[in-house]
Amino acid sequence: FFVERIRKAGAIIIGKTNVPEFGLGSNTYNPVFGPTLNAFDPALTAGGSSGGTAVALALDMLPVADGSDFGGSLRNPAAYNNVYGFRPSQGLVPAGPDIDVFYSQMGVEGPMGRSVRDIALLLDEQAGYHPQAPLSYGKEGSFLDGLGTKASGGRVAWLGDLGGHLPTEPGVLDLCETALARFADASFPSEALVPDVDFEALWQAFVTLRQASSGCGLKAHYDDPEKRRLLKPEAVWEVEQAIRLTAPQIHAASVQRTAWHRTLLSLFERFDLIALPTAQVFPFDVTTHWPREVAGRTMDSYHRWMQVSAFATLGGCPALNVPAGFDAKGRPMGMQLIGHPRGDLAVLKAGAAYEATLPWPVGAA
């Protein structure tokens, strides 16, 4: 639906950028087009699933681009390529028509760009109610016009690595905390805190709901023996886990998600934004399908190392990746600015205030 809108607005669509098979995993490779290489170091991954999008933006091949985000696909590749990626609130950009529009709620479509202004420009055309997307809703005014009024400041809750719950490669938190210090100079002071939440139970809820959505969606391919043998192992895993799920398990995961949403609402009574690293590891060797270990801890699934992306997804919140800087090896990293559900303009305005503090250019070209 949103593609029709951007075409009508005069956008010239020059092609499709590379993604991993079925968008699974945060490393963009597939047997058809091969791997997408990082804009800053071709030996490293570009992230994913919108890895091709992020690299195209970083190399000035495109002014703006779109992507989707379930487990960080608009945020992680943006972080890995020093650009901006925005996951809108659930329902702001109409989904469809080729998905189960009532059931597939946690994956959203959204914009990427080299500036917050460019993101707002594209989002203005993508967003808004569509009658064939029953969970969509209308936008109020223009996001681009809204950026004309500068953010007046606000309080930021810095969740960091959730008190050690999230294994994080050394250097990631340091870059984000340095970025927060700059953000404080723009009237967005931060406070470190860890909500009283069972984060492991919350992650398992995310995994269950993702299997129930993505796994069931892939089952038609799995049921065809000829297609099954072509599926990547991660796709087979999603389907086989989905087959084992029961209705009470899915219901319990949804209840867990609801509890997290309520926790977020209580946090937003005290804070304007929640901040987290966008990824738990820096861009890694592009030939590595996914990290098997992070900070000495074994990863038990192909997406466990991206657990940090699940929190905005489960809350239906808008989340903007902003560039956080580079480590000593020149590897980019980003930080998530997460806002109140349907508070998309406030997040973009905060992102614009943050953007003004950056001491380096965005992109790689």
Rank of each mutant, 00 (worst) to 15 (best):
K219P: 08
L57F: 03
P323W: 09
R87D: 02
D41P: 10
I119C: 15
G316W: 04
N321G: 05
V255S: 09
P111Q: 06
T53P: 04
V197S: 07
P77T: 01
D66I: 14
L193P: 09
S104H: 11
L265G: 10
S136R: 01
D285I: 02
G148Y: 01
A78E: 11
W237K: 13
A65V: 08
E140A: 12
E191Y: 07
V286I: 11
A275H: 04
H165T: 09
V64P: 00
L59D: 11
Y354L: 07
D118I: 01
I250S: 03
W203P: 07
A54S: 13
T278Y: 08
A295Q: 04
R342I: 03
P323E: 10
D174N: 12
C317M: 15
R292T: 12
Q90Y: 09
V281L: 11
R297A: 13
N81M: 06
Y129Q: 15
Q280M: 13
L218I: 05
F206V: 02
F143T: 00
E293D: 08
C216I: 10
A120R: 00
R270H: 12
L62I: 09
H221Q: 14
P318F: 00
E125S: 14
G363C: 10
Q249N: 07
S214K: 01
A328S: 15
G146D: 00
G171Q: 07
A205Y: 01
L159T: 01
L37Y: 08
M333G: 10
Q280A: 11
E140K: 14
Q90K: 15
R229C: 11
V19F: 12
A186I: 03
H130I: 05
S266E: 08
S266G: 15
G215Q: 05
E177I: 09
L37T: 14
